[in-house]
């Protein structure tokens, strides 16, 4: 059997002329938590839908623990919580989870037991007899997570589990996910726009943009790689500092501070200290940036955009 729990090989998905996912290769190892990040329309949800078998790839193939995508064997080990979960308007919480459990192949007794377990785990017991369709967004997300976990899957796919939630509900959902991951030793692919939150959970990051995977690396490796060359500087006269540096280093201005991006970090530091000393400037800040997932994301996306710009210019 394959060492990967999920493999996508050269997967492309087009809708008419629009290519949502373009030649994507993804390999997920068991026991890891993967962050799946990218801007709106990048192809995150489409990729997840392909793994879950709700969409069929136009080209390419994939496997889940060696089973073809969308096969009952593959679906048995996958749990999925979509970005927008719809519920049956006539079902209350306990009926919905019981229905999902029996759909997943649990016997009636097992389904009742598992439903009760999850109601406890997700703190939904006191709402068990209320109609899910009338729940708040946060509670609906919890029910959606619970139904994804109902058959004890080995791999969990969570599409924007914290979208449209207030900070408290977001934290609650993330705490629940974290607890589930620890207790059940799951492999998780989680997409989110709130990148700072993902940082605390994930140990691998996959970035996607315009249907292409642009980064697929363990989070610490990605941070190391992109950390080099980011220096935040603020002096009493930033304009003078920049003119003295004479355009030798790339920079951007962020909230009045200069953000240098360079591979010659040591030389840049020497030059700055020298200018500050010689021109009698006050050095308010000199900080090598610790790369957050958010800034890593920005950096890569900016890189992508400038690459696109260069391509367009060259063309």
């Amino acid at each position: 059997m394959s060492e990967y729990c999920i493999e996508l090989n050269n997967v492309t998905k087009t809708f008419g002329k629009f290519t949502a996912v373009d030649n994507v290769n993804i390999k997920l190892e068991p026991g890891k938590v993967y962050g799946f990040v990218g801007p709106n329309g990048a192809g995150k949800s489409t990729t997840m839908a392909i793994i879950m078998g709700t969409l069929f790839p136009t080209k390419g193939s994939g496997k889940v623990f060696g089973h073809p995508l969308a096969s009952p064997e593959a679906l048995k080990v996958l749990g999925y919580s979509p970005e927008f979960t719809s519920f049956y308007s006539d079902m209350n919480c306990i009926e919905y989870l019981y229905y999902m459990a029996t759909l997943a192949g649990l016997s009636s007794d097992e389904a009742i037991k598992r439903t009760n377990e999850l109601l406890d785990q997700f703190d939904l017991k006191q709402h068990a007899n209320r109609r899910v369709a009338k729940f708040s967004t946060g509670m609906k997300k919890k029910v959606s997570l619970a139904q994804a976990m109902i058959h004890r899957p080995k791999v969990l796919l969570l599409d924007e589990p914290t979208a449209n939630l207030d900070p408290t509900s977001r934290q609650e959902i993330l705490d629940t996910v974290r607890k589930m991951v620890e207790e059940e030793h799951l492999t998780v692919l989680i997409s989110s726009h709130v990148l700072t939150e993902l940082e605390t959970i994930i140990n691998h990051v996959i970035m996607i943009d315009h249907g292409h995977i642009i980064l697929d690396a363990p989070i610490h490796e990605a941070q190391e790689k992109f950390k080099q060359g980011i220096l935040m500087v603020d002096t009493s006269n930033n304009d003078q500092l920049l003119s003295e540096l004479n355009g030798r280093y790339e920079y951007t201005i962020e909230e009045g501070n200069i953000r240098f991006a360079t591979v010659e970090m040591e030389q840049l530091k020497k030059d700055i200290v020298s200018i500050v000393f010689n021109r009698q400037l006050t050095l308010n800040m000199l900080k090598e940036e610790v790369l957050s997932l958010d800034s890593l994301y920005k950096q890569i996306m900016e890189g992508e955009k400038s690459d696109e710009g260069n391509i367009q210019k060259n063309a």
Binding site: M52, T54, P72, L75, L78, Y80, T85, F87, G105, H151
Partner: peptide, 14 residues
């Protein structure tokens, strides 16, 4: 239309 089919077909049944 209700969006419930998406979840239905992600459960392990053909």
């Amino acid at each position: 239309h209700d969006g419930t089919l998406r979840i239905l077909i992600t459960k392990p049944n053909s």
